[in-house]
Design a protein around this nucleic acid. Structure first.
Length: 219
DNA sequence: CTCCCGATAT
DNA sequence: ATATCAGGAG
């Protein structure tokens, strides 16, 4: 486990590496963001953006998703994967927005979490990005980076990772820290090929040093 | 824990 | 061929 000062150094370094870290899901309003984040489960942002480019031209409001059959919506998002669950959840979610929220997206994590297909991670992204409410969404990248670097313990659940990060990072930096960790994980500390050999954090990264030693044996 | 699932990187 | 991708629900 890293000290508070070491974590501070890691986050500052990530900020220097990725000064423009931001949400890469293309959207024009909170409703589009909810749809995009829901679609992004187990799928790259690039592919989501490719699909939503057409999707958001055809479907503007919750009513539009309910005006077609579920099979038609499935076909419109098929290339995303998990498309049966996602199509069903999107249509249920739209019905609830119309019935209970006047067709608007609630600006509240607990209300968002009640929506089908919206778990804690998706809700955190929406409140943070769409409504400016401080939150740390722990996705696959944030979890992997936290564990490799030693921000938390290997056995921690995603909820425990989130709580640890909230405890160790000032609240007014939650959102930007979340995005810096996403970029760091997506483009540098990648799942399959982490760039340990050019990593400025290698000296305090337990996992990184272990990986570098393993590589030496294979030469 | 398993299932959902196509696209892409390794 | 296999792992991974801005996860969530049962």
């Amino acid at each position: 486990m890293l000290t508070l000062k070491e974590i501070r150094h890691c986050l500052d370094t990530m900020g220097e590496m990725f000064p423009d870290a931001h949400c890469e899901l293309i959207h024009d309003n909170p409703f589009e963001l909810v749809i995009a984040v829901l679609l992004s489960a187990q799928c790259t942002d690039a592919l989501v953006n490719r699909v939503t480019k057409n999707l958001f031209q055809k479907y503007k409001k919750p009513e539009d998703y309910l005006a077609v059959t579920e099979e038609e919506l499935q076909q419109d998002i098929r290339s995303i994967g998990l498309y049966r669950n996602k199509a069903k959840n999107i249509r249920k979610l739209c019905q609830i927005l119309l019935d209970q929220y006047g067709g608007e997206v609630p600006a509240n994590r607990d209300e968002l979490t009640k929506l089908p297909g919206v778990g804690r991670k998706t809700a955190n992204v929406v409140v943070s990005v769409a409504f400016g409410i401080p939150a740390i969404a722990v996705d696959t990248h944030v979890e992997r980076v936290s564990k490799r670097l030693g921000f938390c313990r290997w056995k921690d659940s995603v909820l425990e990772v989130e709580k640890t990060l909230m405890r160790k990072v000032p609240q007014d930096e939650w959102s930007i820290t979340h995005h810096r960790m996403i970029f760091f994980g997506r483009y540098h500390c990648k799942a399959q090929s982490p760039q340990c050999h050019v990593c400025p954090l290698l000296e305090l990264c337990r996992e990184g040093k272990k990986r570098m030693k393993e590589n030496q044996r294979n030469e």
